[in-house]
Amino acid sequence: MKHFSSNYNLSNPSVIYEGASQFELGTLDGKVINYNFDKILLYLQIKGKLMFGKNFKIYNEDHELILKLSSYFIQDRQFALKFGIDIDKGLLLSGPVGCGKTTMMMLLPHLVPHKRKYSIVPARNIVFGFNAIGYKMIEDYCDAKDYCFDDLGVENIGTHFGKDCNVLGEILISRYDLFKDKGIKTHCTTNLNAEEIQERYGERVRSRMRELFNLVGFEANSVDKRL
């Protein structure tokens, strides 16, 4: 059984209500919450069914990954460091098609409903927007909000008035500057490996991604959970 600790100012944010049901994810000791991983798994299983339907399930082989991600989301710095995770950086969650990357990035923020949320935006939708309105689309994502760019790498090269642009590459460079200057986080999901990311976006972007993100991934042989 794994336990986490985290500091909060609210009365007891480890207690979450879903309708008439109450889920206690840990115990409050002063201002420190001692989270219980078994209780986290139970809550995520139930919340997942509410969000994604009755066929949702958490697979045993994903428990270690969920443990890593949970330590990040509850901001347990010491526990996260055991996994090589820096809670001040964003997440780059990788894995094969259908393994549950987007699902996890939608589900896990519900562990900390009192925390600032990020918006999940499909990468290809951003490129569609760029093709229509041009560089304003890039500017729109260079703000102080937190984002998760979903399915990084499946998008096409953007084209506006005959000029090509690697739209997500440009956005990531701008988001890197925001991270360095103001600590604003960016998250991504992707099917690409490190070599494919460099081929798609170039060494300049990949080198910044090393500083922007914690690299966390599903196993390469993870099953397609959408089947």
Rank of each mutant, 00 (worst) to 15 (best):
A80D: 08
S207T: 15
H114W: 11
E24Q: 13
M209V: 08
Y17V: 11
G48S: 06
G162A: 09
K68M: 15
K2C: 03
N191G: 07
K68V: 14
E219K: 15
G84T: 11
R204Y: 06
N156A: 12
G84D: 08
F4T: 00
Y17M: 12
D150T: 04
I33E: 00
I120F: 05
I133P: 01
H187M: 08
L91T: 01
E219M: 09
G19Y: 05
T27F: 08
L28M: 15
L172T: 02
K47L: 12
V127L: 05
A132I: 08
I171R: 00
T102P: 10
C99Q: 10
L108K: 00
R77W: 02
N60R: 10
V223H: 12
K182Y: 14
N214M: 11
H114R: 09
D146C: 11
D151T: 05
S119G: 02
S11I: 13
F213A: 06
L69V: 08
F83H: 14
N12V: 04
N191I: 09
T27P: 00
N166P: 05
D86H: 02
G48D: 09
F37M: 13
V223T: 13
K182I: 02
K225G: 03
K31N: 15
Y8D: 04
K182T: 00
G169Y: 01
L81I: 10
E196Y: 03
I40N: 04
D62Y: 11
I87D: 01
G134R: 01
L227Q: 10
R204I: 05
D181K: 12
M106K: 15
A123N: 04
L69N: 06
N125F: 11
G98N: 07
H187C: 01
S70N: 09
L111Y: 07
D86Y: 04
K68A: 11
